[in-house]
Simulated assay, not measured.
Amino acid sequence: MADVIEKKRNKYVYVNDKKGYLFLKRVIDILGSIVGLILFLPISVLISIAIKIEDPKGKILFCQERVGINNKTFKMYKFRSMVSNAEELLKDISELNEMDGPVFKIKEDPRITKVGKFIRKTSLDEIPQFFNILKGDMTLVGPRPPLVCEVDNYGDYEMQRLTVKPGLTCYWQIGGRNSIDFKKWVELDLKYIEERNIFVDIKIIFKTFFVLFGDENAS
């Protein structure tokens, strides 16, 4: 059984990069992100005000370097959900990591603010990524964009996650999120890369609405 699993992990996935599919995917990305920005504009204003009230010194948006398609880096946007010096405090809590592999995640991260806890629980902190989608750095559906330090620890198998644009949602988002270990996370991403088409993308987008808001695995 172990030999079968290892053989699977050494397998190189097929990437659906047909021009027709990519064109339709981009159209859906543009329309979807515009609708998303308009739809969430009122709540985005409220979130911005709440973030500033709780921590006036910090910025409303959190900008972080992430790795996208073909190992190219870009600036990813989120509503700030942590204290303003969160990056500096990371080294002090690194031993609390609850995820295996080159990923840092803990459910009760002490750096998360009260507002941050709410917007993470409801995934509202991801709203600014619609701008990343409009810019073309991201897509609505695709593997979540990893940090540069995480990619530094990738092997050839994991690097296949970077053969497509990173996305706002994917199988990992609707399948358990933080309850899924890193190996399973990569398997789900590669499963999507092999299976992706317009119908799969639309199915994942619809499932995301029902799963993310109030998902007990979100943090």
Rank of each mutant, 00 (worst) to 15 (best):
F74I: 11
M1T: 13
P128V: 00
S48L: 01
I112W: 06
C149W: 13
V151L: 01
I43W: 00
N10R: 12
P128N: 06
F131G: 05
D181A: 10
V186H: 10
L140C: 10
L168D: 04
M82K: 11
V200A: 05
V115S: 05
Q173I: 14
N197P: 09
Y171V: 07
V115W: 02
L162Q: 01
T163W: 13
D100V: 11
N97R: 10
K203L: 07
D215V: 08
S123E: 03
I204L: 02
L140F: 09
W185H: 14
F23T: 13
K117C: 00
E150A: 04
A86Y: 08
K52C: 05
I5Y: 11
D215Q: 06
P110E: 12
G116D: 02
V103K: 07
D156I: 13
I28E: 01
K59C: 06
D109N: 06
K203Y: 09
K107E: 13
F62I: 05
I53G: 08
F182D: 11
C149F: 14
F74S: 15
I204G: 00
G58M: 04
F213L: 08
Q129T: 07
L31A: 13
L162V: 05
G214D: 05
Q173N: 10
L140G: 06
M76W: 08
D55M: 00
I204A: 05
I60G: 11
M159H: 12
D215R: 06
I38A: 09
F40K: 03
K8M: 15
L61S: 07
I69M: 15
I60H: 14
K107C: 13
T139C: 08
T122N: 03
F206G: 06
F210V: 13
L89S: 07
Y154S: 00
V45R: 02
K207L: 12
F23Q: 02
I193D: 01
T73S: 10
D201T: 02
R177A: 00
K11F: 12
N85L: 12
Q160G: 05
K72W: 13
S84W: 07
L31R: 04
N97A: 13
K75L: 11
D152G: 01
E54N: 03
T73E: 06
I93S: 13
K75N: 15
P56R: 00
I30L: 14
V103H: 04
T139W: 02
V148F: 12
I112V: 15
S94E: 15
L212V: 12
G155Q: 01
